[in-house]
Simulated scan of single mutants.
Amino acid sequence: MNFSCETGGSRVIEFAMRFHLALDHVAVVARTLDEGTAYVEAVLGAKLSTGGKHPDMGTHNRLLSLGDRTYLEVIAVDPEASRPSHRRWFNLDSFSAAPRMTNWICRTDHLDNALAAAPAGSGTVAKMSRGDIHWWMGVTEFGRLPFDDAMPALIEWPEGFHPAKRLPDHGFRLTRLDVFHPEADKLLAAFPALHSVDRVSLREGPEKRLIATIATPEGNRILA
């Protein structure tokens, strides 16, 4: 995988350093960007903003602000992009179903330490970009995260920057995210830091599933 890993200089790994986690955004995966956008806009009564392209992954997205430093992303394979030599994130290379929310993403103030504490297979540090936006993310070799993607992807934004600040705020807010998995207790034991993530409930369920409660100008809506 041809990613730029930055572990030297100002990003020296200090495993003993503590790190903070917070809910950053949720991802709705779709076969096409238009299909995913139509699904989210129909459920929420929202108008999504143009996002951009991810050249390292061959994907593109549209976005919806969910308040300060939180947003919703609809993401799909970009048909105009060259196929990358590695697996795309969010298991997009194997996705063929109706649009649904498949992943959640937590931001951290120290990605190296967070990944060191996370379950095996949570990824390695990669520098990513979308237009003039750059960030670091834990990217996995196989395009999937532990526990059937119930484990959140981990991301670190440049200090003082967050893409939600660029999005129009239409009053939508994520009030609760329920993450279900048959081995939810094992995930929490493997990564206890998840206990501290506000608005997220990680619970046992018959299958992996994400359900978001989103407050809209017309009342609460459920997105799954």
Rank of each mutant, 00 (worst) to 15 (best):
V179I: 12
L92H: 13
S82K: 05
P158N: 02
A118I: 14
T102Q: 07
A22I: 03
S4R: 07
R83D: 12
A42R: 15
F142E: 03
A27P: 05
R11K: 13
F180T: 09
F19D: 08
L210P: 09
D112N: 03
G205D: 00
A46N: 13
V74Q: 00
D34H: 15
G67C: 10
V200G: 02
A46W: 15
F172H: 15
I133R: 06
P192C: 06
G205Y: 03
W135R: 05
V29E: 03
G143T: 11
A98M: 04
M137I: 06
A118D: 12
V28W: 01
A27K: 01
M17Y: 14
A38P: 07
F180L: 07
V197H: 04
P182Q: 11
K165C: 14
L174I: 13
H170M: 05
C106H: 07
P99T: 05
L188D: 02
R130G: 01
T102D: 01
A120F: 10
G36C: 03
V77T: 12
A190M: 08
F19C: 12
H195Y: 08
R173W: 04
L63Q: 06
A98N: 03
D109H: 12
E41C: 10
K208Q: 11
P152G: 04
D178E: 03
A22K: 07
M137A: 04
T102P: 01
P55I: 05
V26G: 05
S196H: 13
G160F: 04
C106P: 11
H54D: 06
D56F: 15
L66F: 14
E141D: 12
M57A: 10
E156N: 10
E183T: 04
N113V: 13
M137P: 00
E159T: 04
P206I: 10
R31G: 07
G45F: 07
F147R: 05
D149T: 01
G45S: 02
G58D: 09
V197L: 01
I105E: 00
A30T: 00
A120V: 11
R166A: 14
S4K: 06
T7Q: 08
V28D: 01
W89N: 00
L111I: 01
L48C: 11
H170Q: 07
W136L: 11
H60R: 10
V43R: 14
P79T: 05
N220Q: 14
V139C: 15
R166W: 11
S129L: 11
R18H: 09
P192D: 08
D178A: 00
P168H: 08
E218I: 14
W157Y: 09
R11H: 15
K47R: 15
T70Q: 10
E35S: 12
D34Y: 11
V29I: 14
L154W: 06
E218R: 15
R166L: 15
R107Y: 11
L33K: 08
E41D: 08
E41I: 11
L21R: 05
N61A: 14
A16C: 13
D198K: 01
L174F: 07
L111S: 03
